[in-house]
Design a protein around this nucleic acid. Sequence first.
DNA 1: CCGAACGTTAACCTCAACGTCAGGGTCGAA
DNA 2: TTCGACCCTGACGTTGAGGTTAACGTTCGG
Lengths: 171, 171
Amino acid sequence: MVEAATPTEDTPRDEDERAAARYQIGEVAERTGVTQRTLRFYEEKGLLRPSDRMEGGFRLYSENDIERITQIRGMQQLLGLTLAEIKEMVEAEELRAQMRATFRPDRELPARKARTEKIIDAVRRQLTIVETKLHALEAMQHELAERLATVEARRQQIIDAMETGQPLPDN
Amino acid sequence: MVEAATPTEDTPRDEDERAAARYQIGEVAERTGVTQRTLRFYEEKGLLRPSDRMEGGFRLYSENDIERITQIRGMQQLLGLTLAEIKEMVEAEELRAQMRATFRPDRELPARKARTEKIIDAVRRQLTIVETKLHALEAMQHELAERLATVEARRQQIIDAMETGQPLPDN
DNA sequence: CCGAACGTTAACCTCAACGTCAGGGTCGAA
DNA sequence: TTCGACCCTGACGTTGAGGTTAACGTTCGG
């Protein structure tokens, strides 16, 4: 890493709300373990739009964006969702961020409520997916543990037979 | 289902060890929910060789084969393993079946022991994969539960504000 | 022994999720 | 202002996991 094109690498320190650190695609790729191509691809698919660009068009990712990346990866690998499915979830997440940002209009409470409920629904759906998978995996775990136990017992029988002399038990 | 070409549909009942029921590909597909194409494809990839064929070449699957199919599916969908990876696991499983079948040669205990240990290794590997995923999923579950709680709290605040009059709390 | 239902192989197609160039632009330090 | 490291878009290639179609063979009840 030769740090040729270093972006606005200011750590967010002084003042109230600084222009938080932004990273360009190379660093993001390195930090998250996904390739640059994959990041661009996710963007293409509407899953992750880097929060900014430089003058010349270089992508700039925020810390937040990075979190999203790992979130996406988790959904892909842990839950086995397709990118299309993930996109839906992510869009709900988008709403959430958007709401946080909305500077408290206080009028239009019903609209806020509606959006909140949309988010709640989305999170609930995610949660049930996760829990379903969890149960299935627990079942799998038990089955494997059992299998392991019996095979290990079998091994022990063999070892005993080898040591004592001959009589391999009938089962 | 018109049962035109019905295979040896004898339920294993009389005698000691009958030639257990065998099903042809259509029925297997229906029962397992995977397509015929997929079954043939798995065979092509060496994941699942139907235990028999009819004279004319029709595939005949055993109850055991069917179990294997659901096993494969589980590994694919729950664990997100590739068919290549699953093949490895399945091959260990093959060993196990083979051992069961070996009519107790009693000589060559060391060989039996070696094979048993191979199986144990394989099962252990599967188990750690499962457990890793399980942990990751639990983490995800917690995170989602938290998120849900905060969003639900937010909604409650909005509802309160709507009912009482105006003061949306500061956070 | 015939026909409907079922099965066979072989070849080609699709779709998602990237990988891999090619050709060119941008950034920042010297 | 130039150089090396870095990034851009666009287009085509690849891989995994099957779907689809064609042309033909098998089973078995009537």
